[in-house]
């Protein structure tokens, strides 16, 4: 990606003469954006995802009912002007709870994804760039891939929920626990992809050139390797958000997530399952929120992958 000339040659396009620039130089990211805009599904998904973000972030500023405010006289209400999405068995407003729950769910998704990405990219770059580290780090990755993740996650959350909750407060402790547990168990795919890319990059001429003028190792990695593996990392990031959100809600659904008075989408769904006969909407709404978020994130990932790698477009 640092040498558009050879890429153009490889694609069989007539290469432009470098001494007479006819068009202003195009940046790689603008190119990707232009490709991305052509992917209808991804564009719709992007709009959807941004509106979910707005709903969750701006929504509580406009809809100011406290999500934990109990109004026992207004419990189990249907849709009305006072409570557009009804109330739950304790009279708490569903709309406010969905917004608050979405904040937590998205925060868990984003934080867990960044932990997994940082770990994965670090291990991928280290093992791709330094030959001596390759074998041990890849063995480690394989070991982690062989771990039964969901059972282990369940185990970690149950075992360490109380001590961490005591140390950092019930909400903060469980947030830290869930986020780090998901992050630590989902970096392996990223590490493998990044390692593969780095191994390919190492053979390219510009790396040799950079090395031959005496670039120190940390600058080689930060300036030449990292920007070139950014696109697979970004694709992995979108998929990472999706899996993290699903994992968190699955944990909540199994009753092993956040404490009851601390709404997340998974928790709201779990709480509503007992009464789904009388109030099916209360189950469907948080479920829809989870599904729409994950669906839009997956579509964005699909569009990004197509935009960044023209060879696999349309797969």
């Amino acid at each position: 990606m640092n040498d558009p000339l050879s890429a153009a040659n490889a694609a069989g396009l007539p290469s432009e003469l470098p001494d007479e620039p006819t068009t202003p130089p195009r940046s790689q990211w603008r190119d990707i954006w232009r490709q991305f805009r052509n992917h209808h599904g991804a564009m719709i998904a992007l709009v959807l995802f941004v509106s979910i973000l707005l709903f969750v972030l701006i929504g509580p500023l406009l809809w100011t009912i406290e999500p934990t405010y109990v109004d026992i006289r207004a419990r189990n209400q249907g849709f009305s002007w006072a409570h557009p999405l009804g109330t739950d068995q304790l009279g708490r407003d569903m709309l406010a709870r969905l917004m608050a729950g979405g904040r937590v769910s998205l925060a868990v998704g984003l934080t867990a994804m960044s932990i997994a990405l940082t770990l994965g990219s670090l291990i991928g770059i280290l093992s791709g760039y330094f030959r001596g580290l390759d074998a041990p780090l890849m063995r480690l990755t394989e070991l982690f891939l062989a771990l039964p993740l969901l059972p282990l996650l369940l185990l970690m959350v149950t075992l360490f929920r109380e001590p961490l909750g005591k140390a950092l407060g019930p909400a903060g402790g469980i947030f830290l626990l869930i986020v780090s547990a998901i992050g630590v168990t989902s970096w392996m795919q990223t590490a493998r992809i990044v390692r593969g890319e780095v191994l390919g990059l190492k053979e390219r001429e510009f790396m040799l050139a950079a090395k031959s003028i005496g670039t120190p190792i940390h600058r080689m990695v930060l300036r030449h390797v990292l920007p070139n593996v950014l696109s697979p990392i970004m694709v992995a990031a979108t998929l990472g958000i999706a899996t993290a959100i699903i994992t968190e809600s699955a944990l909540s659904f199994l009753g092993l997530g956040f404490p009851p008075d601390f709404p997340t989408w998974g928790r709201l769904l779990y709480d509503a399952v007992d009464q789904m006969q009388q109030f099916p909407w209360r189950v469907v709404l948080p479920g829809l929120c989870i599904s729409l978020t994950v669906l839009s994130v997956n579509y964005i990932g699909d569009g990004l992958r197509d935009a960044m790698d023209p060879r696999i477009r349309g797969r």
Partner: peptide
């Protein structure tokens, strides 16, 4: 894509 994105606890319920 939908089947892949919907968590099983939601489709089940």
């Amino acid at each position: 894509m939908v089947g892949f994105s919907l968590p099983t606890f939601f489709t089940g319920v």
